[in-house]
């Protein structure tokens, strides 16, 4: 057998988007300690999001929310062997540089933290580490992909346990993709203008009927049925933030949500895993949140 001498290419789009492909059909869980990361890995999380406070606490405690302490991220990377993600503030490219240097597997440029730049997002092409970004609609998703995002998550409304915004955002994105597919070629110029998105990406989506990157759902998923709902609406997987570790029995709930995502189309499995989970997170109705407290309106 001959041996190869060819060059290895790091940080390519294929490699970045590929890791998200491998997470499909899975659950990514927010964790704030190494002990929680251990519970998440044991429960079958495909990745963990390492952060200092879950969105529900960021919401209730207020103040500026920033990238987590490197020691915390190190301790979580040391604890688990599944991929570790961490959040940088929107536009804060130095936090992203730090997270890349720490060896995280994915960076979430996240509206859950306080934005550092109200004009520009991070130029994500400059990094070898891949980025996931939030979006509430197709135009926003395409602008993030144009900046180099290798994975999109619909935003929902983090830290509420109210799935209605997640529902709105995934339905909006899927609906807009469907609409593009029905347009004729000469209508795509105006569609790109209306979406405020690059024409080439709009043409690609009209042809393929899907985003060129993996689409997860986030923001308000608190029960196995919520997770299965998002999967039936066409999500590739789910992020669960406050929903697990703000519930009565995190271990059981994490286990149950993992199973519900795999068997999202089988109500008998969802029923059986939904039993005996204890209290779900208490939550807040999004309609009771005053507009300045809605995280999904951060980012553009």
């Amino acid at each position: 057998m001959t041996e190869t001498t060819s060059i290895e290419q790091f940080g390519s789009s294929r490699v970045k988007r590929g890791l998200a492909d491998m997470m499909k059909g899975g659950v990514i869980m927010d964790v704030v300690t190494a002990a929680q990361a251990r519970i998440a890995e044991d429960a079958g999380a495909v990745a963990v999001m390492a952060l200092e406070r879950v969105p529900a606490d960021i919401r209730s405690q207020g103040g500026v929310a920033r990238m987590s302490d490197p020691d915390l991220i190190d301790s979580i990377i040391a604890e688990v062997s599944i991929p570790v993600m961490a959040k940088a503030r929107i536009g804060h490219f130095v936090e992203a540089q730090v997270l890349q240097a720490l060896g995280v597997d994915y960076i979430d440029e996240s509206e859950v933290l306080s934005p550092a730049d109200y004009v520009n997002h991070i130029d994500k092409w400059k990094f070898d580490v891949p980025f996931v970004c939030g979006a509430t609609n197709l135009g926003e998703a395409l602008r993030r992909i144009n900046e180099g995002a290798a994975m999109i998550r619909s935003k929902g409304e983090a830290g509420t346990g109210d799935v209605s915004e997640a529902m709105k955002h995934i339905r909006t994105i899927k609906g807009e993709i469907g609409r593009l597919s029905s347009l004729s070629k000469d209508e795509l110029y105006v569609a790109a203008k209306d979406l405020q998105a690059p024409y080439e990406l709009v043409v690609e989506i009209a042809a393929t009927g899907k985003l060129p990157v993996v689409l997860f759902v986030a923001g308000g998923v608190a029960t196995p049925a919520d997770a299965a709902l998002m999967m039936q609406l066409g999500a590739d997987g789910v992020f669960v933030g406050s929903g697990i570790f703000k519930s009565g029995n995190p271990q059981a709930r994490a286990n149950a949500i993992v199973k519900a995502v795999t068997f999202y189309d089988d109500p008998s499995v969802i029923a059986s895993v939904s039993r005996g989970l204890g209290e779900a997170m208490v939550g807040i109705n999004v309609s009771d949140l005053p507009a300045p407290h809605r995280l999904s309106e951060r980012g553009w």
Binding site: M1, T2, E3, T4, S6, I7, E8, Q9, F10, G11, S12, R14, V15, K16, G18, L19, I77, P83, Q100, G103, V104, D105, Y106, D128, V129, P130
Partner: peptide, 15 residues
């Protein structure tokens, strides 16, 4: 190979 930044693509001989 380690964390995601060590992920890569390359050409391989597979006789």
């Amino acid at each position: 190979f380690g964390s995601q930044t060590q992920s890569f693509e390359t050409d391989l001989d597979v006789p």
